[in-house]
Write a protein that binds this DNA or RNA. Structure first.
Lengths: 211, 211
DNA sequence: GAGAACGCTAAGCGCTTGCTCACCCGCCCT
DNA sequence: AGGGCGGGTGAGCAAGCGCTTAGCGTTCTC
């Protein structure tokens, strides 16, 4: 039911999943995994949500785990793309950190069903798929660390522990996927703005109107 | 395997679980749930880790879900106790916030197996048990919010959005249970100190030597 | 020292799980 | 017109699940 918002707002996710039936199954799996968790979701449930018989799933995917892997891979690619775009964009370190946190958090809030699966079902992946995904996450870590290191080098930030603060910033953003929409009233934009402000304070960025 | 650290350091957790065999089963369940998740853990696995036959579990617990509920209840009680002790303790708002975050994070790190179950397996609880636990979590939220509100009222903090910042602070602390000990090198004390500093920056607390 | 009570096990019941297989239907291409 | 083919179904298999039950050894009580 939450996937309605995924298909809204112009950009269409899962467009890379090509047979139409395969995409419907994948979207159904995202909803089911987000709602009950990977292990508590049955293949019958996924197929049912997609309006198909249980056997239809195995025409497009070899196993249930392959479905999770596809979701996780696409989601991590998108998340990493958002982060690196901001990290390697224009502007001073504070502006790039603001953009990175704001867009990363917004994605986690707007697509919290997908993000929940992506961020919290990592252990359900097969070992070789897991290590592939872990490599992507290390790149996310590196992107944020780069901004912080730049900011410290430029004298914009006051960060005694760069690796630790990097971990905290990413952790803070990622956990949005867990609690978002349980509360309800905040929009993804609002949460993104709030978090960007909080993170800039965490790194001791000097307030704007000080040129 | 991680429960070794739970039995160390003087204070003995799970001492409230009284028949010895019941405690061994519960500790085994904590390890298993933390490692693979509730739904992926079998009752045979739990009993096996406790060195018993599968049927032994049902002498002490009616269902597998009761085991999770007991763990969740005890863990939430402990976590809430830590938070409220700090929130209602002596000192100015900044000191209380420092103490709250430091001890809360330290607990999540030191007992990250328990914390993982407590924080991330909430949806696996039966509806009536779930709402009981959710009530406890609201009290945790209230404790942190109280400190922030006090700090703002006293002019110690600069927090434009108290409910949102409360959410972020708790989220940051809780997510420690997810990533801790994967990395390895940091001690719970170090993480607690780092996070206390980061949170004080988030709320715009003025640095210490300004009386 | 007989008998109840307790803590535990071996065996297994009923059900659900991930997944397979034989078959079918509509569409394209000669 | 007819044969192949990609996408779909109904039925069902082997395995594993949560949980139960009959029975056994030890300990406590009188």
């Amino acid at each position: 039911m939450d996937s309605a918002e995924d298909t809204a707002e112009g950009y269409r996710p899962w467009s890379e999943v090509t047979p139409d039936a395969a995409r419907r199954l994948l979207v159904a799996a995202v909803d089911a995994f987000a709602e009950r968790g990977y292990h508590a979701t049955t293949t019958r449930d996924i197929a049912g949500r997609a309006g198909m018989s249980p056997a239809a799933l195995y025409i497009h995917y070899k196993t249930k785990e392959e479905l999770l892997h596809r979701i996780s891979r696409i989601g991590h690619d998108k998340a990493l793309d958002i982060l690196t775009t901001a990290a390697d964009g224009p502007g001073c370190a504070a502006e790039r950190l603001d953009a990175a946190v704001r867009s990363f958090v917004r994605w986690h809030a707007a697509h919290h069903t997908t993000a929940r699966v992506v961020q919290y079902e990592l252990d359900a992946l097969a070992p070789e798929h897991r290590s592939e995904i872990v490599a992507l996450r290390r790149q996310s870590d590196a992107a944020v660390r780069r901004i912080l290191a730049d900011g410290v080098a430029a004298g914009e930030f006051d960060v005694p522990d760069v690796p630790g603060t990097t971990l905290a910033v990413l952790s803070l953003c990622i956990d949005v996927a867990r609690w978002f929409s349980a509360a309800g009233q905040r929009t993804p934009d609002e949460v993104g703005a709030l978090y960007a402000d909080l993170v800039l304070r965490m790194v001791g960025a000097r307030p704007r109107p000080q040129k």
